[in-house]
């Protein structure tokens, strides 16, 4: 069965985020003066085949631990969606861009 794993990679709370600070500065310049804090991260969609949701979750966790996130500075969160429930299939989406 095909699954889509939506993987959110975020900097750990204790890690400084220069990119978030720069975005915050840009938002302030645009007039969004009430913005207090911005943290930037990565969003990665992985389409994969697995026998079960648990197997898909295990694979997504494994690839996150070993490559997609750096455990020294980053945390990750996986949201699993069965592909037939996902809005767009990878083929029609042209390489995963929705």
């Amino acid at each position: 069965m095909q699954y889509k794993a939506e993987i959110h990679v975020t900097l750990k709370r204790t890690v400084n985020d220069p990119q978030g600070l720069a975005i915050r500065g840009g938002l302030h310049s645009l007039g969004f003066e009430t913005v207090e804090s911005v943290r930037a991260g990565k969003f990665i969609e992985v389409w994969l085949e697995a026998d079960s949701a648990q197997e898909a979750q295990r694979l997504a966790d494994d690839m996150s631990d070993r490559l997609l996130a750096n455990p020294v500075i980053e945390d990750y969160r996986v949201e699993l969606v069965a592909a037939d429930q996902a809005r767009t299939s990878p083929r029609s989406a042209g390489g995963g861009v929705t």
């Binding site: 890690v15 400084n16 220069p18 990119q19 600070l21 720069a22 750096n70 020294v72 500075i73």
Partner: peptide, 16 residues
């Protein structure tokens, strides 16, 4: 660092 032969990580410069 990524390979684990040295500890830590190199992040975006604080100045951006």
């Amino acid at each position: 660092c990524e390979a684990g032969l040295l500890p830590g990580v190199l992040q975006r410069n604080a100045s951006m």
